[in-house]
Design a protein around this nucleic acid. Structure first.
Lengths: 120, 120
DNA sequence: CCGAATCCTCCTGGATACTG
DNA sequence: CAGTATCCAGGAGGATTCGG
């Protein structure tokens, strides 16, 4: 439930996920990272391959605003902040999986079409 | 199969469809327009509420490049061009419907969360 | 450790006008 | 009818630096 995230968990994902997109550039990956339990800011940074703090903060704030996740700050030293999915955020996993299923089934065709267009 | 498109067919759709997005801004709507059969350039412009020719052309070209639709030009006067979905394009309808289902079920929660954030 | 502040660049999408 | 050509504004995403 709280094993460390694999820094390479998105290594197999193509740079462009295809036509099906959830939220902005990072939303879907953040949801995947939180699927197995709450995570800290720095934990999220690792698998998200060099995302800058500003962009990660912006994405998390937007998702919090939309009720997709909650932010909990513990008043400790050193500071600790945890992000966790809400039920609403978790409900996005279903359409996300539909998108991933499409990609697995058809993304190769799309890539091929794009390549043969470049050739022609 | 070839009845004229309702110019208001997207009137009920909220300006922002929510977190689930297919392709770029217009891709999903274009697919909906072509679902019931091939359509001409001008036919598509009507329900897409004032999309400029340049943007519609760009979207159609991108979708043609990706193998989502075909473009057929008939050498007549006046000129006639028809756009039709490919099987690959049609395969996107399934994840699209999943996204629409999510919106119908949860978009209100998201909007509400966003509003109460603004208030707080 | 968890950000905020500032500055910058690219890309999407659009307005407007014109053409075979 | 079905586009093309040109110009332009806004916002997403990023680099870098600084603070509590």
């Amino acid at each position: 439930m709280s094993e460390p995230l694999d820094p390479d968990m998105f290594a197999g994902c193509p740079p462009v996920t295809g036509p099906v997109r959830i939220g902005d550039k990072w939303t879907a990956k953040i949801i995947r990272c939180l699927e197995s339990g709450p995570r800290r800011f720095t934990e999220l940074q690792a698998p998200l391959r060099g995302i800058t703090p500003k962009v990660l903060t912006a994405s998390l704030r937007a998702m919090e605003r939309d009720g997709l996740l909650t932010r909990t700050a513990y008043d400790e030293i050193p500071p600790r902040v945890e992000y966790a999915l809400t039920d609403l955020g978790r409900s996005l996993i279903e359409p996300m999986n539909a998108g991933c299923a499409w990609s697995r089934a058809h993304l190769a065709e799309l890539t091929e079409a794009r390549a043969s267009w470049q050739a022609g």
